[in-house]
Computed example of a mutant assay.
Amino acid sequence: MLTATLIKEDYSLEDFMVNPPPHMEWVDGELVEKNGMTLKHGGIQYKLARYWDDYKESSGQGGKIYTDVPCRTKKQGRYPDVAYLTHELVTEFGNLATLPQSFPLSAEIVSPTDIAEDVFLKAQEYLESGGEEVWLVFPESKWVMVITENQGLMFTSGKVVITQKVLIGFSVAVDDLLA
């Protein structure tokens, strides 16, 4: 069955908050389609969400793991590839259409069509809007960058990525995540 989402021409950030269209972000006053997703991208997204969820459960930290779910930064409407929301924030915001802030922990799986500067600006947006930690996953170069307000760390093949501020104690080998 084919369905279409009708979007009015003057679609605002407030409209996005109430009715976020799937696979589209609200950027600089316009709806922009999230594209460039590959099978590799989807597989890494699923694997990272599963790893975070398994760890969240085993460590007793609670909360929820999401994929492709909308949030608002200070000036944009975004859909992080993978995101973690603490138990407290699930209780406060879990029934809204769009999270009114960034997720405490977000990950973006960088697609071959992504522009590097845009990816880094998105990470900065997340951090300026309530996010505490952002993972940028580069499948082709086999890099994972973990960015917080005060530091940026690079993990490469043969290394183990470790959370810095959220889901404390989580770690995964870069090679396992990107295999």
Score class of each variant (00 low, 15 high):
Phe16Thr: 01
Val69Pro: 00
Ile65Glu: 01
Val146Met: 06
Pro22Ala: 11
Thr67Lys: 10
Gln101Asp: 02
Asp114Trp: 09
Phe93Gln: 00
Leu48Cys: 08
Leu39His: 13
Asn19Gly: 05
Ile109Pro: 09
Phe170Pro: 01
Glu57His: 01
Glu132Leu: 14
Lys40Leu: 14
Gly94Leu: 11
Ala4Ile: 15
Asp28Ala: 10
Val110Tyr: 06
Met37Gln: 07
Val18Ile: 03
Gly158Cys: 10
Lys142Ala: 09
Pro104Cys: 06
Lys56Asp: 04
Asp15Asn: 09
Leu167Ser: 08
Val161Ile: 15
Trp26Pro: 00
Gly29Arg: 04
Ser171Thr: 07
Leu48Asp: 01
Met17Asp: 00
Val161Ser: 02
Glu128Ala: 12
Met24Pro: 00
Phe170Met: 07
Ser12Tyr: 02
Lys8Glu: 11
Ala173Tyr: 05
His23Ala: 09
Pro80Cys: 02
Leu167Val: 09
Leu178Arg: 06
Val146His: 04
Phe155Val: 05
Thr67Arg: 12
Pro100Val: 12
Glu149Ile: 06
Val119Trp: 03
Val146Trp: 03
Leu48Met: 05
Met1Phe: 06
Asp53Gln: 11
Val134Gln: 06
Asp28Trp: 03
Val69Trp: 13
Gln164Glu: 15
Val134Ser: 04
Tyr126Gln: 04
Ile115Trp: 11
Thr67Gly: 10
Ser141Asn: 14
Asp54Pro: 00
Tyr126Met: 04
Pro104Phe: 07
Pro112Asp: 13
Ile115Met: 06
Ser157Ala: 13
Val144Cys: 02
Thr3Lys: 10
Glu125Asn: 15
Glu117Ile: 14
Leu13Ile: 07
Leu105Tyr: 07
Tyr126Asp: 04
Gly60Cys: 09
Lys165Ile: 03
His41Ser: 07
Gly62His: 05
Gly29Ala: 07
Lys159Thr: 12
Thr86Gln: 05
Asp114Met: 07
Val119Arg: 10
Thr156Asp: 09
Arg50Trp: 07
Leu177Asn: 08
Gly77Asp: 06
Leu48Ile: 05
Gln45Gly: 11
Lys47Thr: 14
Ser171Trp: 01
Asn19Arg: 14
Lys165Thr: 10
Ile65Gly: 01
Phe138Thr: 04
Thr3Ala: 04
Glu9Ser: 08
Thr113Ser: 14
Gln76Tyr: 10
Phe170Ala: 03
Cys71Arg: 05
Lys8Ile: 00
Pro20Asn: 08
Thr38Asp: 10
Leu31Gly: 03
Pro100Cys: 13
Glu125Arg: 12
Gly130Ile: 08
Leu39Cys: 08
Glu25Asp: 06
Phe120Met: 14
Met17His: 01
His87Asp: 10
Phe155Cys: 03
Lys74Asp: 12
Glu25Cys: 02
Leu178Pro: 01
Lys47Ile: 05
Trp135Gly: 01
Ala49Asp: 03
Val18Pro: 00
